Amino acid sequence: MSTLYWETHGPADGEVVLMCSGLGGSAGYWAPQVPALVEAGYRVVLYDQRGTGRSLQPLKADYRIEDMAADVLALLEQAGARQCHFVGHALGGLVGLQLALDAPAALASLALINAWAQPNPHSARCFEARLALLDHAGPRAYVQAQPIFLYPASWAALHAERVDQEVEHALEHFPGAATLRARIGALRRFDVSDRLAQVITPTLVSVALDDVLVPATCSAQLARAIAGSVYHAVPHGAHAHNITDAPAFNRALLSFLARLR
């Protein structure tokens, strides 16, 4: 298994918080969270997922969430960590759920941001539209549409220059259509809805009620089915609310982690 790009922040002896981003796969997604976690004494591990960013490499056509979970276990070993607090956004949350089911000893806790347990028709429609853009209009159209699914319209308009920079960065580091199809295929096949009661890891479920990509009811399902989970909902912030309202999300995450210390 090829080595992935990864980095650490914070004290070497701190409890490990491993952060797993969504479809984009980038370590840089978590920039709004790192300073708060480091200040609280955690050792933060970030990585570029296989096939993305600085971990570019071909993916097999039947790439699975289980393969992504295996990468996390290998990364923990490389980092010299027996266990981690796992924070996953969207696709990253699916990786966390897979680990909680198949390798629970590796997780001290699990935080799920706008994640889901099974496919739903609305998100499927969104992914079909994005793939159609890629097929018929090319990579620029695909990445131009990405902020529509990530951010509230008001936030994107207010931060237009930042969004433009993100679009250009995404285009410059575009992983290729085959990689995107493999990663989207993996998340669309994921279904652990009948296994959620088996999750015993302390879990935070964080959701923005105005997410236009993943219905908020998906997070509500997770919170109901995972015994003892903490449910954190914000009315506004959309799919990437840990970015668009980072202070509120950081407070919720740090409060959740503090209870486990």
Rank of each mutant, 00 (worst) to 15 (best):
C20W: 06
G22E: 00
A238I: 05
N120L: 08
V44E: 01
P139M: 11
A79N: 11
A225D: 08
D191G: 08
V163N: 03
L73S: 13
R125E: 04
L99V: 13
C84E: 13
I200Q: 11
P235K: 06
Q165G: 12
L254V: 12
V45S: 00
G24Q: 01
P235Y: 06
A36R: 05
Q57N: 01
L222H: 03
P215R: 00
W6T: 14
A81E: 12
L253V: 12
A197Q: 10
H85I: 14
A108N: 06
R64A: 15
L4E: 03
A170F: 05
A137I: 02
P58F: 13
V44Q: 01
D135S: 12
A240I: 03
A74K: 11
L260Q: 14
E172H: 10
E66A: 15
D210N: 02
Q144S: 06
L107N: 07
S21G: 06
S55Q: 08
G92F: 10
L253A: 05
A252P: 11
S26V: 04
W155K: 08
V17R: 04
Y5K: 07
G53K: 10
N114H: 14
A137Q: 13
Y231S: 07
R183P: 02
V230F: 00
N120M: 03
F190D: 05
L23R: 02
G176D: 08
G41N: 07
M1N: 09
F127R: 07
G10K: 08
A225K: 09
V16L: 12
H136F: 15
H239I: 11
R125Y: 06
L204N: 03
H9L: 01
A81N: 03
P175Q: 03
P247F: 10
C20A: 13
S2G: 08
G228W: 07
L209D: 03
H89V: 14
A240V: 10
P119Y: 06
L46V: 05
P152D: 02
F86H: 07
L253P: 03
L4T: 14
A61R: 10
G228L: 12
L158T: 14
D67Y: 13
A111P: 01
N250M: 09
R50Q: 11
R183N: 04
A105K: 05
N120A: 02
H173K: 09
V16P: 08
V230K: 07
V163Q: 04
V207D: 00
F86V: 03
V143C: 06
E77W: 06
A240G: 11
F256D: 01
D62L: 12
T52I: 10
S219W: 04
S193Y: 00
Q146D: 11
S2F: 14
V207K: 00
Q146L: 13
R54P: 01
K60P: 11
Q118G: 08
L222E: 00
S123L: 12
T203V: 04
E168K: 09
G88Y: 09
P202Y: 11
A238V: 04
C84D: 07
D71S: 13
E161P: 02
H239A: 07
L101S: 13
A216Q: 02
Y151I: 03
R130F: 11
